[in-house]
Structure formats: structure tokens, C-alpha cells
């Protein structure tokens, strides 16, 4: 088996792996709604729309520590 063969198999394997990851990611994006930390992905748009210093963050990084 020469280097080109190994490259070929590695390429096919990597593609398979990446396809699985891609679909897992899509599944994740579309199923993640109001669960434990309560963030729908679409809410992240508000990071641009409500971006004054006085606006409440979409998810406060220091929330856990304050409580």
C-alpha cells in the first residue's frame, strides 16, 4: 500500500466522519430549544440588536457566580 492509497482511504474516512458531524450539528441546532439553560439559537441574534452596555446579556457569563 503506497502513500496514495493511504491518502485515499484517509480521505474517504475523513469525509464520512465529517458528514456524521455535520448532520449531528444540524440535528443539535434544530432540537435545542428551551432546555436546561433556556436558549434558543435564534435568540443569539439579540446580541447585535440589544448591545448597549446597559442591556441585559442574552446569557450572562457571571450569572452563576452572582447567585
Amino acid at each position: 500500500m503506497d502513500i496514495a492509497n493511504i491518502q485515499g482511504y484517509a480521505y474517504v474516512g475523513a469525509m464520512g466522519f465529517l458528514i456524521v458531524v455535520l448532520y449531528a450539528y444540524i440535528y443539535h441546532l434544530y432540537t435545542k430549544r428551551k432546555n436546561a439553560d433556556g436558549t434558543d439559537y435564534e435568540e443569539y441574534s439579540n446580541m447585535a440588536l440589544h448591545d448597549d452596555l446597559s442591556d441585559a446579556p442574552v446569557a450572562d457569563r457571571f450569572d452563576a457566580k452572582k447567585k
Binding site: Y41, E42, Y44, S45, N46, A48, L49
Partner: peptide, 21 residues
């Protein structure tokens, strides 16, 4: 554009999920 267009128009990104993909 992902910042300035939503901000200037006051509209949320059409699909945030699509932007990530």
C-alpha cells in the same frame, strides 16, 4: 454584515442557525 445589517435595519438575522452552518 452580520452585525451592521441587523443593527441598522433593526431586524434579527433571518436564521441564526443558518449563519452558524
Amino acid at each position: 454584515i452580520y452585525y451592521f445589517l441587523p443593527k441598522e435595519s433593526g431586524q434579527a438575522i433571518y436564521s441564526y442557525k443558518l449563519s452558524l452552518l
